[in-house]
Amino acid sequence: MADEVRVVIADDADLVTARAEARAIAERLGFPRPDPTLIATAISEIARNIVVHSGGGEIVLRPFEDRNRYGLIVIATDRGPGIRDVEAALRDDYSGRGGLGLGLPGARRLMDEFELESDAENGTIVTMKKWRYRDELARLREERRRRA
């Protein structure tokens, strides 16, 4: 399995690095098209969120696999003031500062799983996952396991 990648996010030039690293690791992991682009776009949004709202943080790109699936976990942390109303931030019409509030809900739609934790002391943590079944048999196996 590929190693995890850590990208420090301090200013807008780091977004270019984050997008390139995201695409590269998604391709290494074997994600089919258009997933590497979807993953890189989602990561670009949360990286920009870090730059605009907190002034600094990091994004960890961590490969994962289990019996039936392979995928990528993205963990973005910042040291910012936190998001006051997390639910509102995930709505399409929310505008935190400057933006149109499209970033987070858009990123969520591009990924399979999306979680946001935020408080004034610890800043904001966004955890997103994208995964694929190894093959059709693995998908059926997983579905049967869920029904059982």
Binding site: R33, P34, P36, T37, L38, T41, D92, L102, G106, R109, L110
Partner: peptide, 11 residues
């Protein structure tokens, strides 16, 4: 093409 898919999915 992949960018077009992302833009649509992003809405």
């Amino acid at each position: 093409p992949d960018v077009a898919i992302a833009l649509v999915q992003f809405r």
